[in-house]
Every structure is written in structure tokens, then in C-alpha cells.
Design a protein around this nucleic acid. Structure first.
Lengths: 211, 211
DNA sequence: CATTTCAATTGATATAGATCAATTTAGGAA
DNA sequence: TTCCTAAATTGATCTATATCAATTGAAATG
């Protein structure tokens, strides 16, 4: 089932060539996180590969040391872990977002997270050792990476505020402000666990809003 | 009251000289986050000042653009914000921890957070523009800062997991594992809001545990 | 196109934790 | 020491959200 899905979606994604993914990806990164020298861009391009996945494919398994960092160019993905056998989604990524098994990528420990595609997706991939190497070699790349990490840190900070003392309704409203079209792209169940509430509660909140 | 407290505690902290705070602080930083060249250490030492506060002093007011980053050498502090007039503690810092108005420090926007000392504290201070300057000038310092940010990011990630789906009891137990002596140093009320629960609930949990 | 399967919704009930109110305790000031 | 203020505890409810169970809906499969 996964196989067939994947094939179908692969073709659907062939409008973007690998080179396009890498080059336009690097351009977007520079715009968001800091300019790179030409030498650095060349080195970086060498280290990036392209990954394509169909709908709902598991990309990283829990328990593995996962040193891939994905930068999405199309589609969407999520990171999740299991709590009492139930999937809890921790992170969403859409176009221009990063996703990785955050603990594993930065500490080389086995990942408590799974990563899976949601929609068919295309992403640039870099491996942790390559990133380290590029950081050591190019000061401007280390600067860019620091900016990315800072940005991620600030987002996580925001989420903590949301989870710490907001009602289920408030959390959902805030999510919709940040990602207005998330409900068209992501299963409601994933959104619920992301907000720290049950499917049923989210369903009722959505019902109230609709009426 | 704040004034008098402060005077008393200032004297209590005079066992560490300013130079000691700066130099041993830089040493600790290097041990945790990466070695620096001698030139860099010299430059960095130039940019660090020392701040001393008494018990329960407000260090940063909400609404201010706060570009101070504190590295604690003694005592403790917390960051908090107001939600419906109630203080919600967001972050604790003890010896060897950083604390700043995280949003303000990294984005130069007015801070939604207050920062206050808990116990009398001594800290090294660096200003955001100086940090930026040092990052630009010294690749090794930028590397160190990236490591600090990465570390902070991973901690925030851990807290999200804790807040997302754990019971009040579980959250308290986990906190005690991480900071076994926190209850001797921090008011129970601050701990409660940090965990996203009310004072009363935490009090009852503590009662159950004690028996 | 029919069938299977999984996700979402809806309903009924249970409960963890919030809220409100009253006491007790403890740390700082006189 | 004694007083005073604020924090912590304890008790009695209340409520938002979880849980359990059943039904509906929609997408994937043959």
C-alpha cells in the first residue's frame, strides 16, 4: 500500500527537478537566514540531496539514530512519538520549513520520534556530519545555522506559552491564525494531539465554531 | 524593602570578585559549549560585566526592549509573564544557566517577560549587540553561541513533551528528577505555574507524596 | 461499483484539576 | 520577641476535558 501510494505521488511531484529543489532551496535559506559566499553555496549544494515521498510514508523510525535534516519544498510532514501506544504529533512542517528527529539530529542519540510525510513531499536533505563540516569550514554557514536554531528555539518558546495555560479552544484558535489552511492539509487527529487535547474535544470545538 | 534586601545580599555575595565571575564564567562556558581562541577570550572578557541582585528583585520589566543576557554564577532567577493578572513562570535559572527575555533578546521587540531574581544572585552579563559583534568577528564564538542555542532549543523541546500530555503528578515528579533541590530554593507557587497547574493542585500532590 | 477500513463525529459519563473560600504557617519588619 | 503580611495548605464545590462506546462519513482497495 505504501509502495503504490509512493509511486503515484512521485510522478505527481516530478514538476520540480532535483537541481531546482537544491538551488531554489538554498536561495530561500539565504533570504530567510543570512547570505552565503559563492564558495559556501557551492560546497553546500554538494552536500544536499533530494528526497521524495508519497502520502503518509514513515521517513524515520523511532529508535534509529537519524542524522537527516529535511528542508521541505513541497508537501508536508510531521514528527510524532508514542505515548501509551498513542501517536502524539510534536511538529508540523510545510513548504520552507525544516523537520528532523530533533534530539537525534543534534545529539546522535536514538530518536524517540518518528517522522512521516503527510502529503506527498519533496525536500532537500543534509546529514548532520556534513552540516558540522560546513559549519567548521564556513563562518557564514555557521551563522546561518545559528539563525535557524534561534528561530526554532523562539517557535518552541511560543508553543510552551500556548500549552502552559491556554484552554483547548484558545489553542485551536491560535493555531488557525498561524496556519489558516492547516485543516485542509492535516488530519484532525494529528492537530488534536499537537494541541495536547483529544480528538473528541477538538471535534466538539470545531462543531461549535462551524455553527 | 527591595532596597534593604538588596544591600544585605550584596554583601553576602562579595565572596566572588567581578574578575572571578568573568574569568571562571568564560571557563565554564568553554567547557560546556566549545573552546575559544585566546584572542576571542580577551575580546569576550571586555564585553562582559557583572551584575549582583538581592532576593526577589525585578531585573527586567515587561514592555522594555531587553538586550541583556545573564549567565548565573550564584543564586537563581526566573522569567515570567502575566496571564489574566497572574504570574506564570516560564524559565528557571541556577548556577551555570542562562536567562534572558528570550523574545526581546533575539528579536529586539519589547519583552512580554519579566525577569526577577529568586535568591540573591551574581551573573555575568552580555548585551545582544556585543554578542552579535563577537559572533561576526570570531568564528569560534559563533560556534559556541550556536551550541548554546541548540542546547536551549533541545530543553524547550523536552518541556513541550512534558506539558503536552503528562498529568500534573508526572510533571512534578519529572521536575524533581531534573532539579532535586528546586523545592528548597524556589517558591512552590512559581513551580506550579511553571508546570502549568495551580498552586492548590501542586500543594495536594506534595501532600500525597509526603505521606 | 461495492466493500472494506480508518477517521471523524456524536452522545453519555467520569475525573483531574480549577476555582472559591477559609485556615494555617512562616519569614521579614518593627 | 511580637506583629504583620504573604505564601502554603486544606476543604468544598464546579467545570473543562478525558474516556468509553456507538454511529456516521469518506477515502482507499479490490
Amino acid at each position: 500500500m505504501q509502495k503504490q501510494d509512493s509511486d503515484i505521488n512521485l510522478t505527481a511531484c516530478h514538476d520540480i527537478s532535483d537541481d531546482e529543489v537544491v538551488l531554489s532551496g538554498i536561495e530561500v535559506l539565504q533570504r530567510h537566514y543570512g547570505r552565503l559566499s559563492d564558495v559556501c553555496v557551492k560546497d553546500l549544494a554538494q552536500c544536499i540531496s533530494v528526497a521524495r515521498f508519497g502520502k503518509s510514508e514513515v521517513i524515520i523510525e523511532m529508535g534509529a539514530v537519524a542524522d537527516d535534516l529535511f528542508f521541505l519544498r513541497q508537501g508536508s510532514a510531521r514528527a510524532y512519538y508514542l505515548k501509551d501506544g498513542r501517536e502524539i504529533t510534536d511538529w508540523f512542517a510545510f513548504e520552507h520549513d525544516f523537520i528532523c528527529a530533533i534530539n537525534s539530529f543534534y545529539t546522535q542519540n536514538p530518536s524517540p520520534h518518528y517522522i512521516a510525510s503527510i502529503e506527498p513531499m519533496v525536500a532537500g536533505v543534509i546529514h548532520a556530519p556534513d552540516m558540522q563540516m560546513l559549519c567548521r569550514k564556513h563562518h557564514d554557514f555557521e551563522h546561518l545555522c545559528r539563525n535557524i536554531t534561534t528561530d526554532t528555539m523562539l517557535r518552541l518558546q511560543q508553543r510552551i506559552v500556548a500549552l502552559q495555560f491556554e484552554s483547548a479552544q484558545q489553542k485551536y484558535e491560535n493555531l488557525l491564525v498561524k496556519y489558516p489552511e492547516i485543516t485542509n492539509r492535516v488530519a484532525v487527529g494529528h492537530i488534536a494531539s499537537y494541541l495536547g487535547i483529544t480528538n473528541e474535544t477538538l471535534s466538539r470545538i470545531r462543531h461549535k465554531r462551524a455553527s
